[in-house]
């Protein structure tokens, strides 16, 4: 029994001497929302482009929906949907013309196209605006129309490359509802993002840095596997001063700024609370609140990237 829809085996892409993707391996199961995280330039898009049959791999293989990406790229293309961060719609055409174009390109019959058009208009909330020029729509609407166009042909696997960049938070949340709906229908979704709160919505995540996978697992696993020490959230008047001070303390393992407060990972919660109180009094840090928190993915990734940086 093999329910993996995407199987990636030591996939590597080199551009000249530069290795953009370095022996990446992972599996994605049917109906899963799989998050692909990393900074810009980490190799996320290059990996997705190889999986979609847009780029040939230098080494390694991958199968998408059972088809080898290097040997049967045309078969792969028929069975996937792809949406890039640019929401590749024709801005000078109307909403309906865009839907018709992509529908026909995927070979939908007139009957099916009509049905899917209704669906796409529904999810993009564009009913009644079929004749609007796409370029005049707000970003969030374009984004959902682009997703609608990318999945008109009922693909079993959907690749979304930074689908939420440049979209406001409310629209971003609505977009994730759509991704959840797709997943509930059994569609496998591989999504890249650099919004860590979005990664929480994923069933599984891998973190990629400089072309290599540095961690993987469900959000829960990542949090419990990598963060073994308590994390204290420290609220104080001047976080930058407090950070530079706390950083130097031997009891503070990791310190990072999260907006108006600090996250400090410590070995012993009670001892650390005492240390912080003491520091605050001695240096006038004006600490107003200290609380033990459940680590977020952001804590995990900051920790992991720090570890990577230390290795090099």
């Amino acid at each position: 029994m093999n329910d993996s829809v995407i199987e990636v085996d030591h996939l590597t892409k080199k551009f000249g001497k530069f290795t953009a993707v370095d022996h990446v391996s992972f599996d994605v199961k049917r109906g899963e929302i799989f998050g692909f995280l990393g900074a810009n330039g980490a190799g996320k898009s290059t990996t997705i482009r190889m999986l979609c049959g847009l780029l040939a791999s230098t080494e390694g293989t991958a199968r998408v929906g059972g088809f080898d990406i290097n040997k049967e790229p045309e078969k792969v293309k028929e069975n996937i949907g792809y949406m890039s961060q640019k929401f590749s719609l024709y801005e000078d055409l109307t909403v309906e013309e865009n839907i018709n174009f992509y529908g026909r390109v995927y070979g939908l019959s007139n009957h099916l196209l009509k049905e899917r058009k209704e669906w796409a208009l529904e999810i993009a909330n564009l009913r009644g605006r079929e004749k609007s020029i796409t370029g005049t729509l707000p970003g969030g609407w374009k984004q959902r129309l682009a997703l609608g166009c990318a999945v008109l042909h009922h693909p079993k696997t959907v690749f979304l490359d930074e689908p939420t960049s440049g979209v406001d938070p409310v629209m971003r949340r609505k977009f994730w509802e759509l991704i959840n709906d797709l997943s509930a229908e059994g569609v496998t979704v591989l999504v890249t993002t650099h919004f860590l709160e979005e990664a929480e919505y994923c069933n599984d995540i891998i973190l990629i840095n400089a072309g290599k996978i540095i961690a993987g697992g469900s959000p829960k696993e990542l949090k419990s596997n990598y963060i073994k020490t308590p994390i204290l959230e420290v609220q104080c008047a001047n976080v930058i001063d407090a950070m530079s001070l706390i950083e130097k303390q031997p009891w503070a393992l990791e310190t990072s700024v999260f907006g108006t407060h600090l996250h400090v990972s410590v070995e012993n919660e009670e001892a650390a609370r005492g240390h912080i109180r003491q520091l605050s009094m001695q240096n006038g840090l004006d600490v107003t609140h200290v609380e033990k928190i459940i680590p977020s993915l952001e804590d995990v990734f900051i920790y992991l990237l720090d570890q990577e940086a230390k290795k090099n």
């Binding site: 979609c52 028929e78 996937i80 890039s84």
Partner: peptide, 14 residues
């Protein structure tokens, strides 16, 4: 320029 060429290349268009 607008990125639609890449989109076209992931469709079955030859």
């Amino acid at each position: 320029e607008i990125g639609t060429l890449e989109q076209l290349m992931v469709t079955p268009i030859r």
